[in-house]
Design a protein around this nucleic acid. Structure first.
Lengths: 192, 192
DNA sequence: GAAAAACATTGATCTAGTTCAATAAAATGG
DNA sequence: CCATTTTATTGAACTAGATCAATGTTTTTC
């Protein structure tokens, strides 16, 4: 019986089924209510988490105190401040649950133990970082080369269920536009 | 006698001096004239290169055929399409020299051989990817939260010598603004 | 060292997206 | 279930930055 995490692992690396329980033992399941802050700017990130339920945002705070959302992590995504976690140094980002959420988390120690027992998983973590990198590249490109309209269309393709789950102004923040303008985009679109 | 590459390595990982020549043997020095295309969209990236001289840009092409510059790599930076190189799959980015440039390059094979002889270098490559990731995060944030003015000021801090070395319209592309507007920003600034 | 190409500046006009303020509608919680 | 808070919509005025077109200035190239 495969958990979502094992399914995710399997698409990165081939493992014998015998390893399954062994791997799961290294992860600690945790639940958080909505609006729980998991990491504040300047703190050291103590977890790398695989989301099994809920929705979590990572964001920067700008000079006026407004959030700029970097990523949404929903079911089957990883969430962490990678640089802060890996080197145990202060983070520049914040992490907060949007919905009540469940994570399977690794600490620096449990990750190290996991990898020394199952070194093949190194590949999975490498791919995870690579995917994040590619995602940021594409988003930077989109923010420079595309209109808000098109960015929103791409967002809907990538996260079809999020608009039903989270407040619209968070999507505006992710897209890099004002909530008012997103409201107008949606109105325009519905007229067609 | 330390090469720039060895200096770079040393700030990531501590190695015995005995290893120095051994490490360098895995890198192949190559020179390119200016405006040489090292990677085209859709090709598989066959190198990871440490820049010892010159300046190289990585970029996407937008729907109108215009470049959007993602990074400049000058002396002591790494340049590659990380995802394409690691997994040997088609790239989404292009890489091209701006100035005549010299690189020390690794191929997938030579990198593997290097790492199996000097596994401590894994850490350096991990840090390299992490730094790229953090750089993209910050740039995305800047493009959403800051005015062109401030982005340009940050650019000047980060790359103080580039404005003297490369055409201004490439900087505009990197900043996500039109060349005309960058010209106006500079004029405004010089008036103060 | 002349001709061509690439690059930079400037002005005029336009627009995608912001900001502010007011109102309406949902969601939340005691 | 009422009161409060959070969210969404709409209008009006504004602005950062784009686009187009013309001119001037460097850099290349042969």
């Amino acid at each position: 019986m495969d958990t979502p995490l094992l399914k995710y692992i399997h698409q990165c690396v081939t493992l014998s089924t015998a390893d399954h329980e062994g791997i799961m033992e290294f992860f600690q399941p945790i639940q958080y209510p909505k609006k729980t802050i998991l990491l504040n700017e300047g703190e050291i990130c103590k977890f790398e988490g695989f989301v099994t339920k809920g929705c979590i945002k990572t964001y920067f705070i700008d000079q006026n105190g407004f959030e700029v959302i970097l990523t949404f992590a929903t079911e089957n995504w990883w969430v962490s401040d990678i640089a802060s976690f890996q080197d145990q140094r202060p983070s520049k980002t914040c992490i907060e649950t949007i919905e009540a959420s469940e994570l399977l988390i690794l600490t620096p120690d449990s990750k190290e133990a996991l990898l020394s027992k199952y070194p093949d998983l190194e590949r999975m973590f490498r791919l995870m970082v690579q995917r994040h990198l590619a995602a940021y590249q594409e988003r930077l490109f989109g923010n420079i080369a595309l209109t808000a309209d098109k960015r929103y269309a791409l967002f809907l393709e990538k996260y079809p269920d999020l608009p039903q789950r989270i407040p619209q102004h968070l999507i505006a923040s992710y897209l890099g536009i004002s909530p008012e303008f997103l409201s107008r985009l949606r109105k325009r679109k519905s007229k067609k």
